[in-house]
């Protein structure tokens, strides 16, 4: 009965967790100290959002299944599910190549999350609506920060422009999936295709200022939302889940 809601909540959580983990890889490696702190702040914001969604998903699972099974917790959902069970979109699991690509991935995703959370605030499910409302302020800043970096790099030096072009070339193919609703999204009453035009307008606005071209229509990769991921997710989960797998239920 509530299965679609569990899946949808996990999808929201997985998106935030995986991008948070990707951004965390920059910790100690940022191009300058100030940006190192900025990207890890964003990482922590995303992990915080993921926690809220996982806690809610655990509660929903607890309500819907036989009480004798091992109870789901935010930790078990993050650390003990396999690759095929993760429902994040492909964009967020793409490995870091350089700063330009990290910035662009964040811009594409924050632009989407900003529109999504505005919509989700009005959702019938009051818990999801509350998490969306709380997170929207953070996401507003992520969008502002990443937009300015896209402009700064796109309209910067010949090299930074070139790196942005390469990042667009690499990531654009993963932007279509975001707006193609999975079954659980439709059931949850959130159709992302409705705000795709707004997303595209924002991309055009920022790319125009950044002197970057908006790509033509092209083949889009998909599958992440239903568990068919690129090879990269397995590696990131190995890293993320290592301690819990090696030392089950360890505490510190």
């Amino acid at each position: 009965m509530t299965n679609y809601l569990i899946d949808y909540t996990l999808h929201l959580a997985d998106n935030a967790l995986i991008l948070g983990q990707r951004n965390a890889e920059w910790c100690g490696h940022g191009p300058v100290l100030e940006q190192d702190i900025a990207i890890t702040n964003i990482s922590l914001d995303l992990v915080g959002q993921a926690r809220n969604f996982y806690q809610y998903a655990a509660e929903l699972i607890h309500q819907s299944v036989d009480k004798s099974t091992h109870p789901a917790t935010e930790d078990s959902l993050a650390y003990l599910r396999t690759e095929r069970e993760f429902k994040n979109c492909l964009l967020v699991e793409q490995p870091n190549t350089d700063w330009a690509q990290t910035i662009l991935r964040q811009f594409f995703f924050s632009n989407y999350q900003f529109l999504l959370y505005q919509e989700l605030q009005k959702n019938n499910d009051t818990q999801l609506a509350a998490i969306a409302e709380k997170s929207l302020k953070e996401v507003t800043y992520h969008l502002r920060w990443s937009s300015e970096w896209v402009i700064r790099l796109g309209d910067g030096t010949a090299e930074s422009h070139q790196r942005m072009l390469q990042a667009i070339d690499e990531l654009w193919r993963y932007t279509g999936e975001i707006f193609t609703a999975a079954d659980y999204e439709e059931e949850a009453g959130v159709d992302p295709s409705l705000f795709q035009p707004q997303w595209l307008n924002k991309v055009k606005e920022v790319f125009d200022e950044a002197t970057l071209p908006v790509p033509e229509k092209t083949f889009m990769q998909s599958g992440g939302k239903t568990g068919t991921h690129t090879e990269h997710l397995g590696f990131i989960l190995t890293e993320l889940q290592y301690i819990q797998r090696a030392y089950p239920d360890s505490q510190w």
Binding site: E25, G30, P31, V32, L33, P95, N96, T97, H232, F235
Partner: peptide, 24 residues
Amino acid sequence: IRKFYYGDIPEDKAGGNIVSSSSK
């Protein structure tokens, strides 16, 4: 595409010492 995992971003990509000294 070069793949980097946690703790594995080489300095030339990460903008470590070399880049940060010039950006400073």
